[in-house]
Design a protein around this nucleic acid. Structure first.
Lengths: 226, 226
DNA sequence: GACGATAGTTATAGGTCCTAACGCAAGAGA
DNA sequence: TCTCTTGCGTTAGGACCTATAACTATCGTC
């Protein structure tokens, strides 16, 4: 938890702003869910809120900024879901905790595919401007994975070859000091596998083949963490 | 190879149409490469071809139809690249052939990321209308994978549990009769892993962590086909 | 050579994002 | 309590987009 910005008592106007921003984002999400990111229109959001289009530009500089905000919120939400799954008291064993994490990842994505697509789908709009915020938000989700994988043990996976190993330790060091390069690499690979499975499932590729995605995932689960 | 539609000698007009359609698609690809799918504009394509916007509607019913066509072409192109890699005379051993296939998949995607994103990125527009064509095009690419994996041998992978096994055999049967359910499942998983790695790399996620994607891929290659 | 199909043109309707200029309400300070 | 300033929301408009309609001119075919 980074230090919360000192909870300066908000003025009424600030509270109003915050609340309206929230409502706008919620309306945007509902539009997103049914029309996809392309169909998200500022005017339509305004109409849904009983307000005329350009009014929203008092709250978001642009449609892209709104989208970026949605992406960051989605990362934060996914991170929360992962944290909840990883820290559930039931499974003290690392392996069940790992599987719970993987299932939570998939469940989150299936429950709100439009938000998942928002995360990994589009070439992001305000690329340079907000890039750092996005990377940070994504790293927060990765950290949950790192934590659980560390508990899973560094298993005698062959240490990655040199140029890679130092990159991995440098990266892991910034986020979870005790992590070795082998675990970091494992995290990357697990992440990519999860994403591969989930994104294909969401895109409907398994269903189009007449194959039940649930069972594919369960079958994949055993070999996920290598 | 499905039977080619009888090569009725094309009239001059038909040949002209075909050629213009090709030029439009090529111009669209070039726009796609620099502006992303959102920036693809019919007027801009027209301008690039020295023709005024609405003229293109003689050749494509809509912007979405044009996009769909691009997707199908991309699948076909990817399939060709995979076939070429899988059937290269050099490697007769199944394992090197498999690795060549995997590398070819990644190389194709890296060489033209905008086309790869087109394949797996967006929720497709003309969803119902052209769905079957899209599925077929995608299956053609999968078949290359199936072929090589079959040669890799059915390895004593535990046969998938029942409901899944019959779905897999039904699917494999339609495309490659001799394939068993274990191999079919393996193909699905390999595909999802390849896609996971490649799509994260293309989205810049590895680079954003300061990690060289080449090395991640090489490290992942060994454990790809399980 | 005359006809008919069709390529390409401009004009236009309806939609998008976003900016600009305005009026008015509501919070902040005395 | 009264004033002042901040800033919200409105409408108008520019620039762009997709897509259709009506028209012209050209090109292939008979």
């Amino acid at each position: 938890m980074p230090a919360m910005p000192a909870p300066e008592p908000l003025t009424m106007r600030e509270r109003y702003r915050a609340q309206v921003r929230g409502e706008v984002k919620q309306a945007a999400l509902s539009q997103l869910a049914e029309s996809g990111p392309a169909g998200l229109s500022v005017s339509a959001i305004g109409k849904q809120l009983g307000v005329s289009g350009p009014a929203l530009y008092r709250y978001f500089a642009s449609r892209d900024e709104l989208l970026t905000e949605l992406v960051i919120d989605a990362y934060a939400d996914l991170t929360d879901a992962l944290r909840a799954a990883a820290s559930q008291p039931a499974g003290l064993e690392p392996r069940p905790r790992f599987e719970a994490l993987a299932r939570a990842y998939r469940s989150w994505a299936l429950a709100q595919p439009h938000r998942y697509r928002l995360l990994y789908g589009p070439p992001l709009p305000g690329y340079d401007a907000h890039a750092q915020r996005l990377v940070d938000a994504s790293q927060a989700a990765m950290n949950q994975l790192l934590g659980v994988l560390r508990e899973l043990g560094d298993r005698t996976a062959p240490a990655p070859p040199q140029p890679l190993a130092s990159q991995l330790t440098a990266w892991a060091l910034a986020h979870d000091p005790g992590t070795g390069p082998a675990t970091a690499l494992r995290a990357l690979l697990v992440w990519s596998r999860l994403h591969g499975l989930v994104s294909l499932e969401i895109a409907g590729n398994f269903a189009a083949m007449g194959i039940d995605p649930d069972q594919v995932f369960e079958a994949a689960l055993g070999a996920l963490a290598v």
